[in-house]
Nucleic acid binder design. Sequence first.
DNA 1: CCGTGTTTTGACCTATCGGTCCAATCAATC
DNA 2: GATTGATTGGACCGATAGGTCAAAACACGG
Lengths: 193, 193
Amino acid sequence: MPWEKSFDESEVIDKAMHVFWQKGYMATSISDLTAATGIQRGSLYNAFSGKQELFLRSLQKYDREQRCVLLKRLEAIDDPLKAISVLFDAIVQQSMEDPQKKGCFLINTSLTLSEHDDEAQALVSTALKEFTQFFARQIKLGQQREQIPVTVPVRATARALFALVVGIRVMGRGGFDKPALHQVAKQALRLVS
Amino acid sequence: MPWEKSFDESEVIDKAMHVFWQKGYMATSISDLTAATGIQRGSLYNAFSGKQELFLRSLQKYDREQRCVLLKRLEAIDDPLKAISVLFDAIVQQSMEDPQKKGCFLINTSLTLSEHDDEAQALVSTALKEFTQFFARQIKLGQQREQIPVTVPVRATARALFALVVGIRVMGRGGFDKPALHQVAKQALRLVS
DNA sequence: CCGTGTTTTGACCTATCGGTCCAATCAATC
DNA sequence: GATTGATTGGACCGATAGGTCAAAACACGG
């Protein structure tokens, strides 16, 4: 009886994600989304409740596929100092290899978000917090293995490292070039030694 | 013959600035601006060429009254370590005492800006660069006075300190509280010792 | 190959956007 | 107080925003 959708919902979200990521929520119109995804207005509203939901799903997808994947990859390294170092290199790399200089979708969103989008707000909030918890875990582990001095305060340093990540991602969108970002990344390691 | 304007142009820009600062360029409508400034649509367009110019003027005013004033105040301290420390305290203070959590107008704008606003882009770019140059000057001065080890790389550390400033301002808009930001500020000083 | 019920399409809706326009309004000059 | 000419208020403009809807297109079970 029914009929299968002619498009892959996940692909649509992926296309929408890149538009939202580049232009932000407000600057992205429904027309932008239909143009980018190839599906028509009505179909889009048939599959999703509206712009908001599509944005939230995009944000979730980014969080799942970018942040979670990255952190899991780093956690597998099982060498705290190396993991932190690789993380910063990866961030610098990601920041510079993107010709559109989109930066980090989550961080961009945290600055753009109006206070009415409770769900998105919550998503961003927990995402950023889990990021600092990653740092905290690595530092603690490093201290257990005596790679990192026990004089290094765990939570404070974790937060500072996270602040540096945020700084790098924001600077990567402005006029700062790769050597500049790399210098910042190098300084991050001084906080854990 | 003619007739004096009934409003103070500078006051209008100040009111507009706070709206743009809080909501961003795109999310601010002309109606928002007329409501906030009290003057009517026609008068606004009579005094300014449009939304763009008003935004640029707002950004200039912020740059002049916030960033420049702050940096000048710090420069007068004539004690590099103290100046840096006071700067970070001030940033944390500013971030938390604002109930609206607006953050830094310049940093917000650097993430929101579309690539067509050349003038605003340039303003933000030089503002951010002068900020890192401030750090560089302080570090160099601190080394001359033997307050800061000469092993500290000037430019790299200056950029890292700036990245921390950006991080703090962004984190201040999200769920992070005052103790958290203060811990980050404390870590900044470890980079210059 | 015919119903069935979902998907698709694109025209259409209202609200609001940034911006224009001009008659009414006023302060200064005569 | 009449004249002057910029300022003001707010109706108005086309464009576009996000969102709706009904008819056409379609894949399946019978």
